[in-house]
Computed example of a mutant assay.
Amino acid sequence: MTQLETAMAILMKVFDTYAAGEGKPDTLTKGEAKTLLEKELPGLLKAAKNQEEVDKMLKGLDFNGDSEVDFSEFVVLVAALTCACHNRCVKK
């Protein structure tokens, strides 16, 4: 597999691993989403000023308002964070 194909497979595997914990196997509950962020993006949570900020971010992931985070919503988060990191790292 190419590097991009490998990255895509890893994204799917990470999502599926955490989604399998509770609730539906194809969505993340609030608890699963929080655990995923704590384990996979610890720097993001450390940068949060307080728990309310983390809760607001988790709620913001649920674009369609169904109280769950599906894979599409998860990918949007990853893409947004990737863009933010890339823009910060670009030298002008």
Rank of each mutant, 00 (worst) to 15 (best):
E5N: 13
E22I: 04
G23Y: 03
T35W: 01
V69G: 03
T29M: 04
D70W: 03
A20Q: 11
M12D: 13
K49V: 08
F63V: 12
V54M: 00
T35G: 00
L81W: 03
K30Q: 06
E38I: 04
G65I: 05
D62G: 08
K59M: 06
K91F: 11
A80Y: 09
F71S: 05
A19H: 02
G65K: 08
D62K: 05
L41P: 00
A48R: 00
D26A: 07
A80M: 15
L4I: 14
L36W: 01
T2L: 07
E32W: 05
C89S: 13
L4K: 03
A33T: 09
L28P: 03
D66I: 08
C89H: 09
T35F: 02
K13Y: 05
I10H: 12
E53Q: 03
G65F: 07
N50D: 15
M57R: 00
E73P: 06
E32T: 07
S72K: 10
A84H: 15
E38H: 02
H86C: 15
S72P: 04
Q3Y: 15
I10G: 07
G43C: 08
H86M: 15
D66A: 06
C85I: 14
V76N: 02
E5M: 07
E40V: 15
E40L: 07
Y18F: 13
G23P: 03
C89A: 15
D66E: 11
A80C: 14
C85T: 15
A79N: 07
L44V: 10
K24Y: 08
E5H: 10
L28E: 01
K39R: 13
D70F: 08
K91R: 11
L28K: 02
T82H: 06
N64S: 11
G60K: 08
L28I: 06
E53Y: 00
L61D: 06
P25Y: 04
G23H: 05
A80G: 06
L11P: 02
A79L: 14
T17N: 09
L28W: 00
T27E: 05
L45Y: 02
A48D: 01
K91D: 11
F63D: 10
K24H: 09
A7T: 13
K24D: 12
A80E: 09
C85D: 07
Q51E: 15
T35V: 12
D66M: 10
C85Q: 10
T29R: 03
L36G: 06
S72V: 12
G65A: 09
G60P: 06
L11A: 07
G31N: 12
T82M: 04
L81Y: 06
M12Y: 09
E40G: 03
E68W: 08
A84R: 11
